[in-house]
Amino acid sequence: MNFDFTEDQHEIKRTARELLAKRSGLEQIREAAEGDAYDESLFTELRELGWTGIAIDEQYGGAGLGVVELMILCEELGYALAASPFLANALGGLMIEHAGSDEQRAKWLPGIASGEATATVAFASGGSSEVVPDADGAAVIALIEGDEATLVARADADVEPVSTIDPTRRYARVSASGGEPLPGDVAGALARAEVALSAEMVGIAQRTQEMAIEYAKERKQFDTPIGAFQAVSHRCAQMLFDTEGARSATYFGGWAADADQSQLALAAAIAKAAASEAALSVTASSIQVHGGIGFTWEADVHWFFKRAQLDAAMLGGTGKQRARVTRLTADSLATAGGA
C-alpha cells in the first residue's frame, strides 16, 4: 500500500509546474481569452517536450507511460489554466488507443502523439454535438452516443466554432453522418478520459483555493486580515476538504486505469463526480472570498470558474455519474449476495 507518486512522477509534476508558471501565467491566459486565440508557441513547446504523447504507446511515437503520468500533466495544465488543445487531444487519444482498431490506432495515434494532427471527443446525439472542445483545429473527432462511439475525420464533419462562457478554450458545434465505429472497449476508454478530465478540474480547484487563501491573508477589513474571520477561514477549510477529496478520487482513478481495470468504471465515475463538484464549488467560493474584486473582469479567478463550468458538463455531469455509482454498487452487491 503506497498512495503516493513515484519519484519520477513527482519530478514530472514539479517540472510541469515550473514550466507552466513561466509559459502560461495569468497574463498569458488573459491574452488568449481576450484575443480569442491560443498562443501557438505554447502548444508547440509542449509537443516538442513530448507531453502530447506521454500516455500513447511507443510504437505510435508516444512515451508509453500511463494514465497516471497523463493525469499529472492534466492537473498542472488545469492549475495553470493553460489555453491549448492539449486536453481535448489527450482525451481523443485515449478513446482511439483503448477502443480503436489496429488500423485506427496506426492511422491516428502518431499524429496525436506528436500533436501535429490532434483529436477530440464529445458526447453526441444523432451524430451532432453542440459544444466540442478544440474540434475546429482537430484532425479527428470521436463522438460517443450511448455505449458506442464513432470516429469522424475533420474533413468529413460539419464543424462550426461556437463561443461559450469559457474564452480560455475553443469550442465548436460538430455534426457528422457516417464515420467509423470504434470497435473496442468504449466504456474503458471513456473512463480513462474521465480521469484525465477530472485531473484538470483538481488543478483548477487547487489553484483557486490558493488564490483565495493568499487574498484572505492580505486583504484587511476592520483592521484585520479577512482570513482571521471564521466565516472566511471556514470557507477556506471547506475548499481544502473539497479539493483533497477530489484529488483522492482522481488519483485512485488514474491508478485503477493503469493497474486494476476491474475497479476503473466505478473509480472514474467517482472521480468525475467529485472533481466536477469540487471545481464548481471551490471556484465559486474563491470568487466569494475575493469579494467585490472577485466579481470584476480584472481579477483572474473568473477564468477558472468559467473553465470549471464547461469541464464539469463535459462527458456527463454529476447526476449521470452518481446514478452510475449507484447502479454499479447495487449490481456488485446483488452479484456478491447471489454468489
Partner: peptide, 27 residues
C-alpha cells in the same frame, strides 16, 4: 439513486483520503 450515489462517493473518498494520509505518515 442520486443521493445514494453521492453518499457512496463520499464514503469512498474517505477511504482513499485516509490511505493517502497513512502513506504520507509512513513516508
Amino acid at each position: 439513486a442520486d443521493e445514494l450515489g453521492a453518499l457512496h462517493i463520499k464514503c469512498e473518498i474517505l477511504r482513499l483520503t485516509a490511505y493517502r494520509g497513512l502513506t504520507a505518515t509512513m513516508k
